[in-house]
Design a protein around this nucleic acid. Structure first.
Lengths: 337, 337
DNA sequence: CACCTGAAATGAATCGATTCAACCAAAGAT
DNA sequence: ATCTTTGGTTGAATCGATTCATTTCAGGTG
């Protein structure tokens, strides 16, 4: 009579089996509120016996919240983003949550429609790597939104300190003794591209003005391999007249392209020219020679972002995470043989 | 009085605004059932006016279904899996669904706990790349589960035809004229590793027995770069006495390692030795020389898997998707200079 | 004109949790 | 001995959709 249906057990069944009210069962579910140990035990046992699992939809209907966070990326196959996704997922399960994933493919429309879909599903928060600079301007959300890497609307941003990271590279190359340096910049319509460039250029200029004179050539690239190869080639071909002993690139992909460009011309790295990247994607340590670069600490980025979503207490503020210079085999003092 | 709360509009508000019953509103929501055009228009207008959005939790409570599919991967940072994830996501949004992502990290326990979490959230179906061979044995699910690439429990599997793919490579190398061939196998405790190896070895033996004699060396590797480098080196060092003109590897990572191994020994690819991989990860076309390999059609894998989840009509059956041989620069006829 | 039919619309029950006002009993205060 | 207080527990209302039994109404028939 009580088990009229073959469906899963509900809170009512548990209450009945334990001889208490549904309210009480709900309270042992909630854990924090006071229930006498004896009763609690009885309820727990009933749950176990009936193999009870709470119905998340019912709970969500009442509380307007689900143990779910949304993650929106421009492209999950980008190694940096997939690394980030992994870390976000780890942080989410630590907090007993699931993550919903969506790709914006760099399109603001899709991005905002995904955000809407997430809100409809009453996520507890959303982490988004903006599809493009300036996306997500006029969006109000009942739940916390945090942008990572690329700012989304007016929401707090957790990002690597690109400027400082680029300065690290500038200092490193200068101290190695390089005085003829080239920089392959990323797209200047992205904030990341600008920050890295500005950081690098300013620092090199500063060093050059108070110490040895430094020549700096700046070339414009996109963020991909081919662009790196092409630009590096031109740079190095012209190098006969105006020498370049080190190339810093705005991304590992550019740098790896540059590696190839150098090899195309029969130049050795790092003997003839040092090359340094930025990001530390997996490939960076797989390529020959292994690439010196600035590592982005995705685990910290993810952790900070999730903290912002879950710590209601902490006020949502943007935060920079420092990058680490990781020195491998693609860089050395100039003239080294 | 009617708009007593500043919260979002509910179906009731819409009904009131349109002067119809909630039942009617629900039916225009459901689209299929008959509502007179005039009324329908009124309801639609009311929805637009109130900026109404259905409450998914309420719907889920009633229907026990959400527009949500689960995806479980061993590791999202693996380029093949992230490519697959991208395709699954695309297929899901095509069908108006969101995807929930979880990583098993190769652990069966986490895997099954994630599956449970997905079921709790009333997903419509689950796509899983099994954490390990033989995982997910005794699991019953009220919704369709499909495994991709690596079989999960007794659920249908969508996978590349590894055996046939490997045969493609065997045929290709043989026709190029190679008669001294080596195979670097993947772990034999994985089905993928076994299938590729068996496919390759059988086909080479078959060719060797009815045409020119063929020598075949088989070496055991894991699936990573270093293992490929080490094994290839040993193989090629011994090659002085017993020559090898072509190496087929069970994965691109192995093959790329082998590329490096060959270069370490001062050998040219493909002039001195041809090297062929399997998978066609992004890196395969970035490495120098660009790697000849067998491409897994992740878009088709994803599509087949999702079809299995959504077409209730079609009976759930395993399905093989063929791999494509993509010929690049790491292979040529032997003795080519 | 009365009757039947089927399409369209209604309204109430339902899904399974949370939560809050009400209640109760035992302990402490007066 | 009576009156609070308080910690535990109950039961009913509620969240916002779907769905089904019921009612309404327009049009066709004999």
């Amino acid at each position: 009579m009580n088990s009229k249906k073959n469906n899963a057990a509900t809170i009512k069944d548990v209450a009945e089996a334990a001889g208490v009210s549904v309210g009480t069962v709900s309270r042992v579910l909630a854990k924090e509120s006071a229930v006498k140990p004896a009763l609690q035990a009885r309820v727990l046992k009933a749950m176990a016996d009936l193999d009870y699992r709470v119905n998340i939809a019912a709970r969500a209907l009442r509380t307007r919240q689900i143990d779910l966070v949304g993650l929106i990326l421009p492209d999950i196959t980008n190694p940096f983003f997939s690394q980030l996704a992994k870390c976000v997922e780890v942080e989410a399960v630590k907090r007993g949550h699931c993550v919903m994933l969506a790709s914006s493919h760099g399109d603001c429309e899709t991005e905002s429609s995904h955000i809407q879909a997430f809100l409809d599903r009453s996520v507890r928060g959303i982490v988004v790597v903006a599809a493009a600079d300036g996306s997500g301007q006029a969006l109000k959300s009942p739940v916390p939104i945090v942008s990572v890497d690329r700012r989304f609307g007016r929401y707090p941003l957790i990002a690597t300190d690109h400027e400082k990271g680029a300065e690290l590279v500038a200092d490193y190359l200068y101290e190695l003794g390089h005085r003829h340096i080239a920089y392959i910049a990323g797209p200047q319509d992205t904030e990341v591209g600008r920050l890295r460039r500005d950081g690098f250029v300013k620092r090199i200029r500063a060093l050059g003005s108070r110490g040895d004179r430094v020549t700096l050539k700046i070339r414009q690239g996109r963020f991909d391999y081919n662009s790196g190869e092409r630009v590096a080639r031109k740079l190095l071909e012209a190098s006969a007249s105006l020498p370049v002993t080190a190339i810093a690139a705005a991304s590992d992909q550019l740098a790896i392209g540059a590696l190839r460009g150098a090899r195309d011309l029969g130049l050795l790295v790092p003997e003839d020219v040092s090359i340094v990247g930025f990001d530390d994607i997996e490939l960076a340590s797989l390529v020959v020679p292994r690439l010196t670069t600035v590592r982005q600490q995705t685990d910290l980025l993810a952790k900070e972002a999730m903290d912002l979503i879950f710590d209601d207490a902490r006020k949502p503020r943007s935060q920079l995470v420092s990058g680490e210079l990781v020195i491998r085999d693609s860089s050395s003092s100039p003239g080294y043989s």
